[in-house]
Amino acid sequence: MTALTTTGWWRDESREPLRRNLGLIGVLVALFGIGAIIRPDLYGDPQWVVDNTLVILQQAAAIGVVTVGMTFVIIGGGIDLSVGALIALAGVWSTTVATQSFGAGGMIFTAIIVGVLAGLVNGVLIAYGRLVPFIATLAMLVAARGLAAQISGKQTQVSNDQFINGLASSKVLGIPSLVLVLLAVAGLGWVLLNRTTFGRRTVAIGGNQEAARLAGINVRRHTMLLYALSGLCCGIAAIMLTSLATSSQAAAAELYELDAIAAAIIGGTLLSGGRGTVTGSLIGVVVFATITNLFAIANLPTEVQNMVKGGIIVFAVLVQQLKFKSVKQLLTRT
C-alpha cells in the first residue's frame, strides 16, 4: 500500500487510524496542560501525577472493556444499546446471596455466563429474528434492567467476597489489577480484530453485508457471535464494577452504552460499520476518563463536564470528515 502512494504518512489513507490516535493523544496532552495550569501544586508533584494517571486508567478500565466489545459490534455494522443494562444484570446476578455462597469463582462465572447468554439473545434476535439492532438491544436494555431490579429486590447488593472486593485495590508491579484486565482484554481484542479471520470477517460484514454473504461468510452466525462477544465484555465489566463499588445494583452502569459508543466514535470507529480500531476506542475511553478526572480536580460541576463531553464528540466527528475531504469539499457538500 505504501509503495503505491508517493504521499506522506499524513495523507496516506491506510495511516488514517495512526493520525487519529496521535490527534487524541494530543488532546490528552492538552488536558494535562490545562490541569497543570489550574492546579500547579498537584501537577508539580511527580508522585501525585503517577497516582492520578493510574486512577484515570482504573476509571477507564470497566468502560474500556465494554468499549472493546462495542467496537466489534459497530465495526460489524451493528449497535449494542444494552451494555449498561447487561452489566447491571450480570452484576446483580453475581452478587445475590446464593451466588456469593459459591465464592469468587462462582461470582465471576455467573457474571460471564449471564453476560454471554444475554448477548446471545441479542444476537439471535438480530441475526435470525431479523430485528434491527437498535430495536433488539433497546428491548434488552429495558428488559435486563427490569430483571435486575426483580432479582435484587431493588436493593443495593453488597459483595462480601474478599477476593472480589480486594481486586480493585490490588496492584501487580505497581499497576492496578483492573488496568491489567483492561490491557489483557484490549490485547486479545486487537489480535482478534487484526490477526484472525474472525476479525477480517467482522470488517467485511460491516463494510458490505451482501458482498460478505456472497463471499461465503456465514453472516448470521457471525453477527450473533459479535453480540455474544459484547455480552462477554459486559460480564467481565460487571465483575470489575462490583469490585470497585464492593456492591452491585439494578441502576449500576447507568448510560454506559452511550459512553462506550461515544468513546468508539471519537476513537475513529465508523458508526455505519466496516472501519475502526481497538486502540482508537481505548484512547477514546481514556480521553473521557481524563476529562471527568480533570473536572473533579478543577471542582467544576458535572453539567459543564457533560457539555464539554458533547462538544468533544461533535468535534471529533467533524475532524473525521475533514480528514477524508478537503475543507472546501466539507463546506460545499450537499
Binding site: 476509571q59 443495593t156 463499588a245 449500576a252 447507568e254 478526572n293 480536580i297
Partner: peptide, 20 residues
Amino acid sequence: RAARFTADTGQKEAQNLLQA
C-alpha cells in the same frame, strides 16, 4: 462532586475527589 445515588458512581466521584 455529584454522583447518581448508585454505588458505582459514588466510587467514581469519590476516587476523583480524593485526587483533587
